[in-house]
């Protein structure tokens, strides 16, 4: 089978979220010396197709997470073959769930979606204080700060993080995207976030859009 045929099968299999089949195909492609960065690009194409199906309402969270798990698993096999110069970073993101909130499913899905689009993500985990976000921004100099919160009782922490950034004169150094079940666009505007969404996939698309604008 030619490289093109294998790539076509990989995209098709990935679109159907055939976890084991995708892993097998990637192994075959590596064994036949297909460049690992080509395989990665094919996987990224598949992830875009999954995202489109999700946005059209054909796929749901189970499919999105199934695809994310497949991607993560393939990356474990693929990463040792990727030379550093071939790992292109779309941008750097610092990500975390706010203080007092321990929810991380949406955050972790968002992280995988960003990684599949080529972002380098520094995940601070859950229950992250405003001070810790500031510390990491100083250390990592990211393009994007992504803040997650699930609960209505913890969403005000987003405001505290942004205030802390302003206090430290860091606000204009990063784009800020906030996400979570209780988040609304109106709330995002009120606290001065650049984007506010409940949907991880839509959030990742916004980050990709920002990165494309920077690349111009």
């Amino acid at each position: 089978m030619s490289q093109d045929q294998l790539a076509h099968r990989l995209v098709s299999s990935f679109e159907q979220i055939e976890y084991h089949q995708v892993k097998e195909l990637v192994k075959t492609m590596l064994d036949t010396n297909i460049p690992s960065d080509d395989i990665l690009r094919t996987m990224q194409k598949g992830m875009v197709a999954i995202g489109e199906k999700y946005e059209k309402g054909e796929y749901y969270l189970s499919e999105l997470m199934g695809a994310a798990e497949t991607f993560k698993s393939v990356m474990v096999d693929l990463t040792p073959h990727l030379s550093k110069k071939n790992i292109s970073h779309t941008g750097i993101v610092v990500l975390g769930t706010v203080k007092g909130d321990i929810h991380e499913i949406g955050k972790n899905l968002f992280k995988t979606l960003l990684q599949s689009s080529g972002f380098q993500v520094h995940d601070l985990g859950v229950d992250v204080s405003p001070e810790r976000f500031v510390e990491e921004i100083n250390k990592r100099n990211p393009d994007i700060l992504a803040i997650s919160s699930l609960l209505t009782t913890t969403m005000n922490q987003n405001d505290l993080v942004i205030k802390q950034l302003k206090k430290n004169r860091l606000r204009n150094r990063v784009k800020i995207i906030i996400g979570g079940n209780a988040i609304t666009e109106e709330f995002g505007r009120e606290i001065g976030a650049d984007a506010a969404l409940r949907d991880a996939m839509l959030g990742a698309n916004i980050c990709v859009k920002w990165a494309k604008e920077w690349a111009k």
Binding site: E18, S62, G66, I105, N108
Partner: peptide, 12 residues
């Protein structure tokens, strides 16, 4: 757990 069970219909 939600994170492992939600995609399990595809991963296993």
């Amino acid at each position: 757990g939600t994170a492992a069970f939600t995609p399990v219909f595809y991963t296993d």
